[in-house]
């Protein structure tokens, strides 16, 4: 068989695979549709270039394969052609870059009304903290963390007392309300990633990183850790339940706050006076 035919079939196969693939992105459940659109655009432009270049190559292979008595063309360069190609490529690249940067700008500009969620990661698990009635999260420090103070909240920070603590890898979010995910880690790098939300960012020990999104579809989603964090990396999962306003409010009402926790602990551990004194 002529090699050109096989190359042609490879290109055709790639295109058909792309069109008929049963494996494609999960249905989006957040406001980041723009990312999907940019991907689609890049697919059109890039895919077009891929197909064009490879087809041209295949054509040459058919048309100009070796013949004893034919001589190749002698043409060291063609400035005009090279110039046209440079500019066309530059334009294509700009067309792809521009939407990318616009969306990145949205990604790093968090809306004012976003709900702040403290996502705390460790080897290997997650837990969450939401602001209480005052709407503000208390400040934290890694060295404060212990059984009585699982989030390491600074005890002298008044904002911390009413923080809602969710000591589980599952959290609920309210549909159509932007959330600002504040990531922190107590040991190594992690990354709180929900494929349906598209967004992600590493949690880095020592600093607080952030990103935001607005869930727009109720349902339960799996959280994956997307930054290698040691042997338990692949098993470091969590879940998110996106609910409508009412259900969410009910759920939130049932959660424990930091003061609840302190009170509970004082009742439980009578011998331990460390917290009670403060």
């Amino acid at each position: 068989m002529h090699p050109g035919i096989i190359f042609f079939l490879v290109i055709l196969g790639s295109v058909l695979f792309h069109i008929f693939t049963p494996w494609y992105w999960t249905d989006i459940a957040s406001n980041w549709g723009g990312m999907d659109d940019t991907i689609t655009l890049t697919f059109w432009v890039g895919g077009g270039v891929f197909v064009a270049v490879c087809l041209f190559m295949t054509y040459c292979v058919f048309k100009f394969s070796y013949k004893e008595n034919r001589k190749a063309e002698y043409k060291p360069e063609d400035k005009k052609l090279e110039k046209i190609l440079t500019w066309a490529t530059t334009l294509g690249v700009i067309a792809l870059l521009a939407p990318g940067l616009i969306i990145w700008n949205q990604y790093v500009t968090v809306p004012k009304n976003a709900l702040e969620v403290d996502v705390m990661a460790w080897q290997w698990g997650w837990q969450y903290r939401l602001p209480g009635k005052d709407g503000k999260l208390g400040t934290t420090q890694v060295i404060n963390i212990n059984d009585e103070n699982p989030f390491g909240i600074n005890l002298d920070d008044p904002y911390g007392k009413d923080d809602v603590m969710i000591q589980s890898d599952a959290i609920n979010l309210e549909n159509n309300r932007p959330v600002k995910i504040l990531l922190r880690s107590v040991d190594v790098l992690h990354n709180w990633y929900v494929p349906q939300f598209r967004a992600k960012m590493d949690a880095v020990p020592g600093v607080v990183t952030f990103y935001w999104f607005e869930p727009n579809k109720t349902g339960e989603y799996e959280v994956l850790c997307a930054e290698y964090c040691g042997v338990g990396h692949y098993a470091m999962r969590g879940s998110v339940l996106v609910q409508n306003e009412q259900d969410y409010a009910t759920w939130l009402g049932e959660q424990e706050t930091f003061s609840d926790l302190i009170a509970k602990q004082q009742n439980l551990v009578i011998g331990d006076t460390k917290l009670a004194k403060k």
Binding site: F7, I11, W25, G34, K200
Partner: peptide, 26 residues
Amino acid sequence: IVTFVNGGITGIFLGNVSVDVPLSDT
């Protein structure tokens, strides 16, 4: 040529910062 062009094109996905967000580390 085929593999390089293919990989080069997907590089444009990953280099374009906001497209990289859903795809990075996958």
